[in-house]
Amino acid sequence: MSNIHTIIPERAADIGNFMVGRLLPFRKKRMVGPFAFIDHMGPAQLSETENLDVPPHPHVGLSTLTYLFEGSMMHRDSIGSVVEIKPGAVNWMTAGKGVVHSERTPEYLRKEKKSLHGLQIWVALPKDKEDIAPSFHHTPKEHVPQWEQEGITIKLIAGSAFGKQSPVPVYSELYFLELSSNARSTVRLGKDLYGESGLYILQGAIHSDGHRYEPKQLLVAKDSSLCEFEMEKDSILYIFGGTPFPEERHIHWNFVASDKETIQKARDDWQAQNFPKVPGETDFVPLPK
């Protein structure tokens, strides 16, 4: 982008039995618009005896967005949702005042070789929505808006941009876009974006102001209205952002809130196992010390 403010490297993080690349939060940039947390999962090749198993764990004050490039994941939550997430579909779970969910390799794949690759994202809720009832929405791949523009294929995974609206039920002004190129192309998005913008390169490279940027880094723009760059052939990248909230957001473990008291209450409730349960699951992730 022609006005890069911050370059955030992808950093290794351990989420139990799986290593990920953490992008947000970052010490110099905690959020981009309402986006508070982004993990890049994989790409990982799992053997017949290796599986993803993230036991039930809680969230408050946010919506989770799961988007896979490869593989499959079984989502179960305390609302009663049971959905297999496949590449290109969008899983959107709003925690609000409190939800619990697990993420596991589907049963039919547990004794086979498999791959897993995707993004796990948290979007903070507006202050007046932090205590709403939890909800869940699954958008199949074929319902995600997609179009061609100046040699670029664009998918609007969530939010609004380019006069279009994703069916994912977001609660604030935001956008999450996938751009892919089959030839070297100039991308001019300034008039179609708003608020703060981040750009994550999954594959290939981009050129901006004489610099070449490759995967495993997140570029944050000073001004989304000046978003212009060149994509190399066969590149894939994600642009996300939106209007930032006027209040600071506190993030602790799996909890996001505009006040620390809400986070402390969530900690106490999870310690006492006062959160709702995921039907059919008995284990859980303990509260970290």
Rank of each mutant, 00 (worst) to 15 (best):
Y108R: 15
N51M: 06
N274K: 15
N254W: 09
K141D: 13
F26S: 13
T94F: 01
E84M: 12
A257S: 11
K97I: 12
L116S: 01
D209L: 11
L119Q: 02
R30I: 12
I132N: 03
T186W: 01
P169F: 11
E173H: 15
P246Q: 00
A257T: 00
S180G: 06
V168H: 08
T105E: 03
V170L: 04
D259L: 01
E214A: 13
L226C: 14
K289M: 14
A13L: 10
Q271L: 15
D209I: 05
S135D: 12
M31G: 00
I201D: 10
H143A: 14
T243Y: 08
T6D: 11
Y213A: 05
M1D: 14
D223P: 07
I206W: 03
G190P: 06
H59F: 06
I239N: 00
V123I: 14
V100R: 01
I79D: 13
L23E: 05
S135F: 11
P43T: 13
E103H: 02
F69G: 00
A124N: 08
G204Q: 07
F136K: 09
H252F: 11
S225D: 12
I132P: 15
G98P: 00
E178V: 08
A89M: 08
A266L: 01
E214N: 12
N17G: 14
G280T: 04
K233P: 06
E228Q: 15
S72D: 10
R27H: 15
L116Q: 07
I8N: 02
K129W: 10
V99E: 03
T105S: 14
A183L: 09
N254H: 01
I79G: 14
S72M: 11
F240R: 08
R104V: 13
E178M: 09
D53W: 08
E228A: 12
Q149H: 14
H40M: 12
G96F: 03
L68A: 03
E50W: 05
S72R: 12
I38H: 05
V54G: 01
A257F: 07
P279Q: 09
E214V: 15
F245P: 03
V278W: 01
A272M: 13
K277H: 10
A124E: 03
E196K: 00
D259N: 14
G42N: 06
N274Y: 08
P286Q: 06
G98R: 05
K113M: 13
I85A: 14
I15V: 08
K191G: 03
E142D: 13
D223H: 11
V278E: 05
P56M: 05
G21N: 01
Q165E: 15
A158P: 09
S235P: 07
E50G: 12
Q45P: 00
K111T: 15
L226Q: 15
E48T: 15
N3A: 04
H5W: 12
E150M: 09
P169M: 09
A124P: 06
F229G: 05
A221H: 04
E150K: 12
S160H: 12
H117K: 06
P25F: 13
F240I: 04
P87H: 02
S72L: 02
